[in-house]
Design a protein around this nucleic acid. Sequence first.
RNA 1: CGGGGUGUAGCGCAGCCUGGUAGCGCAUCUGCUUUGGGAGCAGAGGGUCGGGAGUUCGAAUCUCUCCACCCCGACCA
Length: 600
Amino acid sequence: MRASRFFISTLKEAPSEAELVSHRLMLRAGLIRRLAGGVYTWMPLGLRVVRKVEAIVREEMNRAGAIELSMPVVQPAELWQESGRWQAYGPELLRFRDRHERDFVIQPTSEEVITDIARNELRSYRQLPVHFYQIQTKFRDERRPRFGVMRGREFVMKDGYSFHADEADLVREYQNMHATYCRIFTRLGLRFRPVAADTGSIGGTGSHEFHVLADSGEDSIAWCATSDYAANVELAEAVAPALDRPAASAGMLRVDTPGLTRCDDVARHLGIGVERMVKAIALVATTTPGEADSTASPTLAPAAETPPVLWLLLVRGDHTLNEIKAQKIAGLEAFRFASDGEIVAALGCRPGYIGPVGIGNAVRVIADRAVAAMADFVCGANTENAHFTGVNWGRDLPEPFAIADIRNVVAGDPSPDGKGELLIQRGIEVGHIFQLRRKYAHALKATFLDVAGKATAFEMGCYGIGITRIVAAAIEQNHDERGILWPDPIAPFRVAIAGLGYRRSEGVRTATDALYDQLQAAGIDVLLDDRDERPGVILTDLELLGIPHRVVIGERGLTAGHVEYQARNATEPQRVPVAETATFIRSVLSALEPAAPSQT
RNA sequence: CGGGGUGUAGCGCAGCCUGGUAGCGCAUCUGCUUUGGGAGCAGAGGGUCGGGAGUUCGAAUCUCUCCACCCCGACCA
């Protein structure tokens, strides 16, 4: 491609709306342009990257035995009503009406449509297993789109759905996909980690996420260096302390803590470690039993027990509440943080000094496992500017209503598999695989005839890869102060030739054109920068664009018989004799080719 | 959706507090010079100051309102 016939539009300064480095670089390099919140145009250069990511994903999915199809972006509401997601999905699902007043959605995923295909097309166990996938535009009306295409509302996803006669075969395909995803992200040139994950709103059982490792990632992952344990922090279990609760050794004492509302401050004031503190988080349940299930009969007698007005969740001063885990406590499936007014009403004290001592039955106390094993701890006294020290379970307050794992793991916690300690790392979720089981098959009555001729619901798996997010994640992981450093496999062009003075010097033009033709003939994806720009502009642009390999051809070098080659990630250029340039480039590139994946 | 912030030329910003001619840098166009690291000089074009309403002789500036966007929290590829 000649730059003069392509479209390169770089910016010296990034628009002020962009915060994240990948977002800024994508705007500066002219990969994307914003049209509306979370909605972006893929400019020619950016689209080339998207297409390369797609091609690798497609190749590996096909190799793994999946079959590509394409489902509509616009889908009728009826299917979504049938699955229950029309009600369950919430405002993230973009809905609209056509001219006939019929309801439609823009697909955020396609379980309904694929299950509809399956129930119409797959009649016999002899047709199973089958795995369909598509690479398609999705729309999710995110509460807060941000970071450019990293969390856009419109994005491109590879979504695959597999159908099986039984669970064992589903698990086989799940493992096949786990291996396939590892191959894909390896081929993309990304540093990544697969982790066990929460199944979230999609439901089902087994689930893994694939994270690109980057400090700017929105997720935290916990992993163990001495075993293969890795999980999203949302899910990672904080194991119960090894030691039993020690005996009380101090009496409970009220101490003045004027103005000290944070655990750190109180601990410092008392001269103790923050791990001796207990902090209380006040929650209010927003659904009462029965209310969550709209089909429940309104004539049922009210629950025997009146629900608590307030829940007090206790975690150690150096720990944080895990809200996903809290949601798993019976009665707290839907909660919100209590307002200051509700806290004062229930405890007679503003937040900052609240604690579990001396509270009524209307407040339900849930202790984290670590808190339940503490003795002589410090907590709020439910009186402003005061805390209790030397607090002990059973003596100073009743045992908690329940003990549960409700905190986030921290670095240094024991690994749940008992084989070492946990480390914490940030990641960007770029892939997710689920064992859906029969959720959609049941909802949509999708069955096949098994060996015995009996109608049986499909076992399903689903598998997603965020194509457009990968582009941003790759930049997040590979950039420097000058711009992007694309991994070779997804660079918009692999090689750039900078003909310095291309428009003025016939010698440069001849040498540059010759090399360009040779590389093109060798099937190399090459960009010839023949723009009528000064050398500085061309060189800085090419660095911003992140083309992995660059050949600079100038009159000065030609006179001496050489050109310069420099890898984008190298600090120094190297001289190459003019006549050997094409051969040299070919050998550099072939040395970087990964070994062809085995045809298994 | 709650909290905070920003909207002035394609991009980055000043002007607003204290009302009175809409400015700067980059980019763009023309000419000349320059040409291995974002050139110099000379000239030119480009604005409903986010929209609307109000106060005022007069509003980018003050008031109200709506909108858009960004950042922080609950969701997800």
